[in-house]
């Protein structure tokens, strides 16, 4: 039986207390969810809700204080490298070496992920993401939109079965953002890759995600499809639902499914 892309059980993280400071609150407090293979889910929450901490734990960058992460059937506590070989990650806040060319950057990650047909894979990604003219240019000289496409190419170099995206269209103009969203929709449909998307762009989440996890103070306070959430809160769009939850006006009364 194929395992889910992610199986999260009671995931928790409390950062160690600083000397002399009061014990910190949990950054993530008992998250449980199952991301099916081939699905796109959204992880939403205000600043400090625990999205980055959650993604860092899913990637093995951060050790949880409690709970369990099974990524593609591998326990991240004991077998994270087997999972990492089949996962990937993209964030505008993590850079690629900016003095190296785009092709050199992609080559590095092709080696790190042990891609057998390196040059063919780079050519394939260059064709898919229209990077042909950029391959020989230093990564640091690219525009925000071009950097996003290169970051996506890096994230897809190993044909991941699970892709974690942290604000993939942050700082992009509406046209470029729309291009990226269209590309992700098509890629997921054709590759069968599962995607967990953290974003502050509610329209993007509504368009891409079949299911949304609403985070507040490290807990899932609500979840469901964008349509179900909008209907449950009696709102017109996900942004209004987000505001209700962030401001605490309706979250406590909404029934968590």
């Amino acid at each position: 039986m194929t395992p889910p892309a992610l199986l999260i059980e009671n995931l928790a993280k409390t950062y160690p207390a600083r000397k002399g400071a009061a014990p910190p609150k949990p950054a993530v407090d008992g998250l449980s969810f199952t991301l099916p293979q081939g699905a796109t889910w959204g992880l939403l929450g205000g600043n400090g809700a625990g999205k980055t901490t959650t993604i860092a734990m899913l990637l093995g960058l951060l050790v949880p204080s409690g709970g369990r992460v099974l990524a593609l059937g591998h326990d991240m506590a004991t077998d994270r490298f087997a999972a990492l070989a089949r996962m990937n990650f993209s964030s505008p806040y993590v850079a690629l070496p900016h003095r190296l060319s785009v092709a050199e950057n992609l080559r590095i990650y092709a080696h790190l992920y042990d891609i057998s047909d390196t040059e063919a894979r780079i050519a394939e990604l260059a064709r898919d993401l229209q990077l042909g003219d950029l391959l020989d240019r230093p990564a640091g000289q690219l525009s925000a939109g071009q950097k996003t496409r290169v970051a996506l190419a890096k994230a897809l170099i190993n044909r991941p079965a699970l892709l974690l995206l942290d604000e993939p269209t942050a700082s992009l103009d509406p046209d470029t953002g729309d291009w990226v969203r269209s590309w992700l929709e098509r890629y997921r449909a054709e590759s069968g890759c599962a995607i967990l998307l953290a974003s502050h762009n509610m329209a993007e989440v509504e368009r891409l995600c079949a299911h949304v996890l609403m985070l507040k103070e490290g807990k899932i306070v609500d979840q469901g499809s964008p349509e179900a959430l909008i209907a449950r809160y009696g709102r017109e769009d996900l942004e209004q639902v987000f505001l209700d939850i962030a401001r605490g006006t309706r979250a406590e009364t909404a029934e968590v499914t």
Binding site: A85, R86, E124, D128, L129, Q130, D133, L134, G145, Q146, N158, R159, P160, A161, D175, T176, W179, S182, W183, R186, Y187, E190, S191, G192, C193
Partner: peptide, 23 residues
Amino acid sequence: APDDRSEGRGDLNRPRRDIRRVS
């Protein structure tokens, strides 16, 4: 490269056979 993007958008609407399934 906005011209690249509009060209790309055309590509996005075409079904693709060369994207391999995930590892």
